[in-house]
Design a protein around this nucleic acid. Structure first.
Length: 419
RNA sequence: GCGACGGUAGCUCAGUGGUAGAGCACCUGACUGUGGCUCAGGGGGUCGCGGGUUCAAUCCCCGUUCGUCGCCCCA
């Protein structure tokens, strides 16, 4: 019996885990600069939390949840998205008392039972922020700017944000009807299940990938003509702020999002490097969600970014994040006195150096080969001669120069020349 | 969940109805304590898993699993 990782999951191995660490560190740094604080929520929640919020028409909830009945008879779901759990925690812990603004960020694993593909795993990871308590367009803009800031800092330039406003519930309902009416003839030649989906949520029509369908929809009504004055004004202010911050964006009235709780501003970033899983991140305002979960009416806006997808884009562009960890020195053992040798390693490690050595009693030649491959700048030679004189030989592997330093100054010698 | 294609050494892949190969990587050696180049030698694969056809299958058939691409959906 050979075990393998469950379908749609992956191991993140050394060589790649460094990129993950770097990406997460960068995200934390950026989010904290905007005064967001980290929140961590449980891996699983009461399934109702997601049913209540993500919407009946959303596939994420309809068919992609990992759910089970636990031993106490509770119906549990592994979280398929991050916003609902964060809002649940926000309400449960009274984070936002008295009209405060709460800024939270997260890095979490999510679970969606779909057919796996590159860039679409069953266990996926997202970073995101939620800005809760402000209805001002300034919040929308700050979240969008933070998002572009993050992508800039991981070396993804020239990404364009697509933004749209889908207004409040009422105007969206009116629009929905108008669109449905326009689309009647189109719906007639669709397959029954596809048609049912579109009839239930006509907005789905808009983000189709079918060129054919797109062509039929060129003259479809435009949602922005249905926006109520407040939403329209809000949207304009967001765009004005993005202009002022020099965030490049594209307005696309066809952009709608898959989760039902969005209101007003929605946005996403795509990359052409990603094939059919092109979205790098998605977000927007969700002013009604908190009420839906039993809280006081509280406006909020947030974004979720796919970590795997960001990494795929970096790989596709051939970016190799530099400055990743490696060892500083490789210690070559040429004495039978392995205890003394180990003590020296212990000392240097206590002093904070990242070092390695051969554990297999291999030849000097082999040890130097390992030193070379390790990428370390130095090989430190400890043999019987060195033990008697109390001074190690340090070889700079880049230029071949050798010098002799007292045992006590090995770490200084390694570090000293680092800058 | 639907359709198509794929799974051979650590990696990238070739190959044939008679139980397998290359390149790279790895290990050892080329005068006793010195790497990156070169040369010589070496280890390593139940050819995804299970069943069937056959005298015989890695190669044919069926099933299954995992992946890739598209759809769906989304991050």
């Amino acid at each position: 019996m050979k075990f393998q990782a469950p379908r749609g999951t992956e191991d993140i191995l050394p060589g790649k885990s460094e990129v993950w660490k770097w990406l997460e560190d960068t995200f934390r740094r950026v989010a904290e600069r905007y005064a967001f604080a980290e929140i961590r929520t449980p891996t699983f929640e009461d399934i109702e939390l997601f049913k209540r919020t993500a919407g009946e028409t959303s596939d994420v909830v309809q068919k992609e949840m990992y759910d089970f009945i636990d031993k106490g008879g509770r119906h549990i779901a592994l979280k398929p998205e991050g916003t609902a759990p964060v809002v649940r925690a926000y309400l449960e812990n009274n984070l936002g008392g008295q009209g405060q603004i709460t800024k939270l960020y997260y890095i979490m694993a999510l679970y969606r039972y779909g057919r796996p593909q590159k860039g679409r795993l069953r266990e996926l990871h997202q970073t995101g922020v939620e800005l809760i308590g402000s209805s001002q367009p300034d919040g929308d803009a700050e979240v969008i700017e933070l998002t572009t800031r993050f992508y800039e800092e991981i070396g993804l330039h020239d990404l364009v944000v697509t933004v749209n406003s889908i207004g409040e519930t009422e105007c969206r309902n009116r629009y929905r009807e108008a669109l449905l009416e326009f689309a009647q003839p189109i719906l007639l030649d669709m397959k029954p299940d596809e048609r049912a989906k579109c009839e239930k949520n006509p907005l789905r029509l808009l983000d189709t990938k079918s060129e054919d369908l797109k062509a039929k929809l060129v003259d479809a009504p435009d949602i922005r003509e249905y926006l109520e004055a407040d939403s329209q004004e809000h949207f304009e202010k967001v765009l004005d702020r993005l202009d002022a911050l020099r965030v490049s964006y594209r307005v696309d009235s066809r952009l709608v999002r898959g989760l039902d709780y969005y209101t007003r501003t929605v946005f996403e970033v795509e990359s052409s490097e990603l094939g059919s899983q092109s979205a790098l991140c998605g977000g927007g305002r969700y002013d009604k969600l908190i009420e839906q979960l039993g809280g006081p009416p509280t406006p909020a806006v947030g974004v979720a970014m796919g970590i795997e997808r960001a990494i795929l884009v970096l790989e596709a562009l051939g970016r190799n994040p530099s400055g990743l960890t490696g060892i500083e020195a490789f210690f070559v053992c040429l004495t039978e006195d392995r205890n003394r040798f180990a003590q020296i390693l212990q000392m240097v490690r206590k002093e904070g150096c990242k070092i390695d050595s051969d554990l297999e009693f291999r030849s000097a030649k082999s040890q130097f080969r390992q030193a070379d491959k390790s990428g370390a700048q130095f090989a430190v030679v400890i043999g019987d001669d060195e033990l008697t004189t109390g001074a190690a030989k340090i070889k700079n592997l880049k230029n071949g120069e050798e010098s002799t330093v007292p045992m006590a100054s090995i770490s200084n010698a390694i570090r000293g020349s680092k800058q």
